[in-house]
Simulated scan of single mutants.
Amino acid sequence: MAGPYVPGWERRCFSFPLRIPVGRPGAKALMADYNQVRDGKTALEQGAGYRIEYAEANHRQLGRQRLPQQLVFDRQDDLLGYLRKTCEFERFTAGSISPM
């Protein structure tokens, strides 16, 4: 007989640091939309609550490019803060969320 269901967050089965891959532009997109790619990279670098792991790509016309490869959330609190779900999660874990 199986025991009672225990959600993942109670069992602490979500492992941190949590790595989330960031889509990398292909060579054509990098060349055609360079300003958009640069602006997206800048926006990621100005974010808070995560680290960015980079990979280098060598582009024939643009040279060596350092592009984000994945976002890394070190703690659950960092992820919840980034998602703006901290208060909701606290209410949920306290059992105070009522059905709609």
Rank of each mutant, 00 (worst) to 15 (best):
K28M: 08
D77A: 09
E90S: 01
Q65S: 06
L83Y: 02
R84P: 03
G26I: 04
A48M: 07
Y5V: 08
R11T: 05
A27H: 13
L67I: 15
E53T: 14
R24I: 09
L67P: 00
V22A: 04
A43M: 14
A29D: 09
P4A: 14
D74H: 07
I97P: 02
A32S: 13
G3V: 06
R51I: 09
A55N: 09
R75I: 02
G81P: 04
P4V: 11
L62K: 01
A55E: 15
N58F: 12
N35G: 01
Y54S: 09
G81L: 12
Q76N: 03
S15E: 11
R19E: 15
M31R: 09
V6H: 04
C13M: 03
G95Y: 10
R84A: 12
P99H: 14
Y54V: 08
W9N: 05
Q70A: 11
G63T: 13
D78K: 03
R12N: 14
Q76G: 05
Q70D: 12
R19V: 07
F16N: 00
Q76T: 06
Q61K: 10
D74C: 04
E45Q: 14
E90G: 00
R91A: 08
L44C: 03
G81N: 07
V72I: 11
V37Y: 11
Q76S: 06
I97G: 00
L83G: 01
L67W: 08
D77Y: 03
A32W: 05
E90P: 01
K41S: 03
Q61M: 07
G95L: 03
P7I: 05
L18P: 02
M1E: 12
Y82N: 01
Y50R: 11
L71H: 06
N35I: 11
E56T: 15
I20W: 10
A94H: 05
T42N: 11
A55L: 09
Q76D: 04
T42I: 13
A27R: 01
F14D: 06
Q70E: 12
S96L: 10
Q46Y: 11
D77R: 06
P7Y: 10
R66W: 01
P17L: 06
R11H: 07
R64E: 11
C87V: 10
A48L: 12
L79M: 15
R38P: 00
G40I: 00
R24P: 03
G26C: 13
I52P: 02
A29P: 04
T93P: 00
A2T: 05
G95T: 10
S98R: 04
G23W: 01
R60M: 11
M31D: 08
L44A: 04
K41Y: 07
Y54T: 10
G63E: 14
Y82M: 02
C13S: 13
F89K: 00
R64I: 15
Q76Y: 12
C87M: 09
P99I: 13
G8K: 05
D39W: 10
S15A: 07
P25A: 12
R11L: 15
Y5I: 12
G40V: 05
